[in-house]
Each structure stands twice: as structure tokens, then as C-alpha cells.
Amino acid sequence: MTTNKTFALLGLLVLTACGADPKDPPKTEANVPPGGNTAAISSAGAPASGAKVYPQATKAIDARVGETFNVVLPGNVTTPFEWRFDESDKNVVAMTAHNYTDAPPANCAGCDGYKGTFNFTFTAKADGAAKLHFSYVRAMPAGSPAEKEMTVEVHVTH
């Protein structure tokens, strides 16, 4: 049952993420300046084109109510692991979409196992502070312990 719900959620999220050309080469976190970069993600279903992008090293984010921003975490969907968003105060910050973007190396004809990014899109809802907690876990079986964790503090103001 849990798995089915997960599939349904994933399917919904993927659908909402469509729109950009999925074959365009994605940008990497190395291109993302501290504090976010509105041009960083333009690829595969990046849910909020034009939104600020925050890389893995981000510790804190300042956002205004109504603003959409992205947290982009390096990963590899061809391994058993995924980045998962665990919790937040939905009244302050809510996740509106997430997806995965391939990042194949150059001349990758026929290569497999290349890396990518897990992209999470949030919208600041109201004044306040919230913690965004991400964990790097095996997708299956459910309940696998986290291999890595990451927390970002978000401060939302008008």
C-alpha cells in the first residue's frame, strides 16, 4: 500500500515536472553560486524555471512569501539510493514538486550508470522558519536507514 502511494505520488510529480526539453544537458551544482542562481536549472522537468537553486552545501535559505526555490542534490538514480525529503513545517514552506535529472558525461553514447541530480521545489507559504530535512536512503525496501542526511533552515518573510 505504501509503495502504491509512492508510485502514485511519483507519477503525479513527474507529470507536473514536464515541460522542458529533457534531452538538454543539465547544469551541475558547480555552476550554482551560493545563495542560489535563477538560471541554474533549465533541464528535465525542473519544476520552477527561474526559481533560485540551492546546492547540497546550503545551510540556510532566506525566502519571501510566495517565492519558489529549488534544492538540488547530487545523486544517481542508477544506484539503489535516492534523496528523500522528509519533513518541514508545511505552513511555512511546502514542497511542490521533485524530480531527477540525468547528468551524462560528454560523448556518453551507450554508457550507463551516470550521475544526476535530485531536484526538490519548494514554495514559501508564510512568515516563519522551517527546517527542510533530506535523507539519502535506499529506495527499497521501505524503511531503510539513511546513509546521509542534510538539513536546511529556511526563513520566510514578506
Partner: peptide
């Protein structure tokens, strides 16, 4: 491979994703 693929547990997987292959 997609997130749905990662979460496969049983049955016949038939997602039909047309993206580039990325897994061996």
C-alpha cells in the same frame, strides 16, 4: 531507470518512460 523503477517491489514493471537509457 526512474524513481518508479527504484521503488519496484513486485509485478510487471511497465512504466513506459521514453527517456535515455542510463542503467545496465
Amino acid at each position: 531507470v526512474t524513481s518508479a523503477f527504484q521503488h519496484y517491489s513486485s509485478g510487471v514493471f511497465d512504466e513506459g518512460d521514453t527517456g535515455s537509457t542510463n542503467h545496465a
